[in-house]
């Protein structure tokens, strides 16, 4: 969680400073979801992510150097600079891509789950998507097919209360996205997405169910993004109140978990400080790696449009 939080904070600053081109959708506030779910997955298990995808890749084992390099548009990035923030991915880690299309991920995760079943592996595919994506037809088709074929698939809805700039109350007539599971014949579970242990436990049950051949689950994690849909500004937004943000920040997943661990004497404040120091060092090194890396050559442009049989 700390790795995600610090990565996103720094990435946001770099975007503000004009060092990272394009648009970033940052995951700050939602860390408990990616962290709690990914704890159960190996590199062979697949995920599909969203436009807010850095946290998912980090939790899946993504390294800061290649991630920053991708955000900087450098050839050493996970996608050789061709994907950027919205398409960051790494097949070797089972990360089948952030996705610039809201609702783009669920059908692909369903396909990966189909493949797992077809190839008789024990791997599970997890689709992350938002409350906004739960209104896209692609989610519904994927959910129906995953349930019909009893695929090893888990649909994790990160309900942060907003589809881009539109509140959930203004984009759907339900409160719990998990209610939609009933329409497909799969369990729907609601969990506090600001509580990493709660997410971990609920995701564990859903993933175990999928892995043992019992089919998909829709797991809804109630969470909140501290920043705007794009960029780092969190306060003074037209479509939500500062008070609402403050209420959620008081329940910050990282702070709550740190407090809990200290109280339980699992760790100490000093040790937690060391975690931050280590993460900050990694971030510094990652940014340096990115800044020192070359941009792709113009001649690289047409590589990778098709598989021509050569090494990629």
């Amino acid at each position: 969680m700390v790795r995600i939080r610090r990565f996103e904070e720094e990435a946001g600053k770099l975007m503000e400073d004009g060092k990272i081109p394009g648009a970033l959708h940052l995951y700050v506030g939602q860390e408990a979801v990616a962290s709690g779910v990914m704890e159960h997955l190996s590199n062979q298990d697949q995920i599909t992510s969203t436009h807010r995808g850095h946290g998912h890749l980090i939790a899946k084992g993504g390294e800061f150097d290649r991630m920053f390099a991708e955000l900087f548009g450098r050839s050493t990035g996970y996608c050789k600079g061709k994907g950027g923030s919205m398409h960051i991915s790494n097949i070797a880690l089972g990360m089948l891509g952030a996705n610039g299309i809201v609702g783009g991920g669920p059908p692909i995760a369903m396909g990966a789950a189909f493949s797992n079943k077809f190839r008789k592996t024990k791997d599970v595919a997890v689709a992350f998507f938002g409350d906004g994506a739960s209104n896209e037809g692609s989610f519904h088709e994927a959910a129906n097919m995953a349930a019909l074929f009893k695929l090893p698939c888990v649909f994790v809805c990160e309900n942060n209360g907003y589809g881009e700039y539109t509140s959930q109350a203004n984009h759907q007539a339900i409160v719990d996205v998990a209610d939609r599971a009933a329409g497909y014949g799969m369990p729907g579970v609601v969990v506090d997405g600001m509580d990493v242990i709660a997410v971990y436990e609920a995701a564990g049950a859903a993933i175990k169910r999928a892995r043992s051949g019992q089919g998909p689950t829709l797991l809804e994690c109630k969470t909140y993004r501290y920043y705007d849909h794009v960029g780092v500004r969190g306060m003074g937004l037209t479509y939500r109140t500062d008070e609402e943000l403050e209420i959620w920040q008081k329940r910050d997943a990282i702070q709550a978990f740190e407090k809990q661990l200290v109280k339980m004497k699992v760790t100490t404040k000093k040790k937690i400080e060391n975690v931050y120091a280590r993460v900050n060092k990694d971030i510094e090194a990652g940014i340096k790696f990115a800044e020192d890396s070359p941009f792709p050559e113009p001649a690289d442009l047409l590589d990778d449009v098709y598989n021509t049989g050569g090494a990629s």
């Binding site: 697949q46 599909t48 097949i91 089948l96 669920p106 059908p107 692909i108 995760a109 369903m110 396909g111 990966a112 789950a113 189909f114 493949s115 797992n116 077809f118 190839r119 595919a125 692609s138 088709e141 994927a142 129906n144 097919m145």
Partner: peptide
């Protein structure tokens, strides 16, 4: 769903 299935399955 059909095309998505093909994308996810072919990538894996």
């Amino acid at each position: 769903g059909i095309i998505g299935l093909g994308v996810g399955a072919s990538a894996t």
